[in-house]
Amino acid sequence: MDGTLFQTNKILEISLKETFDHLRMLNLWEKETPIEKYREIMGVPLPVVWETLLPDHKNIVREQANDFFHEKLITHINEGNGALYPHVVEVFNLLKNNGCSIFIASNGQIEYLQAIVRHYHLDRWVTETFSIQQIQSQNKGDLVQTIVKKYTIEKGAVIGDRLSDINAAKSNGLMAIGCNFDFAQEDELAQADIKIDSLLELRMIVEKLSCKA
């Protein structure tokens, strides 16, 4: 979802700033908002996010910060401050017309993902949305494996912008398509089977996948 379908950067910085302003108000933070640090670790499970951003704080503070952060994210989504990446709708139509089933596998929280799906009516194309919260291991490879088993998928691809997406594809015998978008890192994308700079490039890839619903 983040950095592949949804332009998280449009609401990320303001939501993170609001969260750390809240922490400052509670006298729990004095430094600058660690926006760059968050950008570096985009794609990791949420517990790792807050352990990294708040390394010297107790878990209860991290949990409260995460809850506040997600409230702000969802508010901005509902207010229309975010956006899908260019050509998402066009590509989704293309995939569905070619008999492909579409799933979202994300490290995002369930309520956050549901807000995006609802606001942009993604359920018109997406068969099911899966959150890392649904599996105990907090590993995206295991999350994708859940989808593969549930829907008996024999051929397909994982399309994403971070190493966790690429590894999830390879651990499940799927094609890894790396998106060179906002949060992508070159050394991670180098490990993908294919790198794309625009979702429109999926046009040529779809035929090779020979997807079946």
Results as ranks from 00 to 15, higher is better:
residue 185 Q to N: 11
residue 44 V to F: 12
residue 145 Q to G: 15
residue 204 M to I: 06
residue 65 A to I: 03
residue 117 V to N: 09
residue 119 H to C: 06
residue 115 A to V: 06
residue 118 R to G: 08
residue 183 F to E: 14
residue 120 Y to E: 05
residue 153 I to L: 15
residue 20 F to W: 02
residue 130 F to G: 04
residue 172 N to I: 09
residue 76 H to N: 14
residue 36 E to M: 12
residue 106 S to T: 15
residue 151 Y to N: 07
residue 144 V to D: 06
residue 102 I to G: 03
residue 175 M to R: 03
residue 209 L to W: 09
residue 142 D to V: 06
residue 162 R to M: 10
residue 93 N to G: 06
residue 97 N to P: 00
residue 125 W to I: 08
residue 81 N to T: 07
residue 177 I to W: 06
residue 59 N to H: 02
residue 191 Q to F: 04
residue 154 E to V: 01
residue 88 V to A: 08
residue 72 K to V: 13
residue 168 A to E: 11
residue 96 K to D: 12
residue 152 T to S: 15
residue 174 L to T: 08
residue 160 G to P: 00
residue 42 M to N: 06
residue 100 C to R: 00
residue 84 L to Q: 09
residue 141 G to D: 13
residue 146 T to K: 08
residue 132 I to V: 14
residue 90 E to P: 00
residue 79 E to R: 05
residue 87 H to A: 10
residue 21 D to Q: 07
residue 132 I to N: 04
residue 6 F to V: 03
residue 60 I to S: 08
residue 194 I to R: 03
residue 46 L to N: 11
residue 48 V to F: 12
residue 135 I to N: 05
residue 4 T to Y: 02
residue 11 I to G: 05
residue 16 L to A: 12
residue 126 V to G: 05
residue 201 E to V: 02
residue 67 D to R: 09
residue 98 N to R: 02
residue 212 K to Q: 13
residue 196 I to A: 07
residue 165 D to C: 10
residue 63 E to P: 00
residue 43 G to D: 11
residue 26 L to P: 01
residue 13 E to G: 08
residue 97 N to Y: 02
residue 33 T to D: 13
residue 101 S to M: 10
residue 24 R to Y: 10
residue 67 D to Y: 10
residue 42 M to W: 02
residue 200 L to A: 09
residue 113 L to D: 07
residue 86 P to L: 02
residue 129 T to R: 00
residue 43 G to A: 09
residue 42 M to V: 13
residue 148 V to H: 02
residue 32 E to S: 13
residue 123 D to Y: 11
residue 19 T to I: 05
residue 206 V to N: 07
residue 69 F to C: 08
residue 174 L to V: 07
residue 100 C to G: 11
residue 165 D to Y: 11
residue 170 K to F: 15
residue 99 G to V: 03
residue 129 T to P: 00
residue 100 C to F: 13
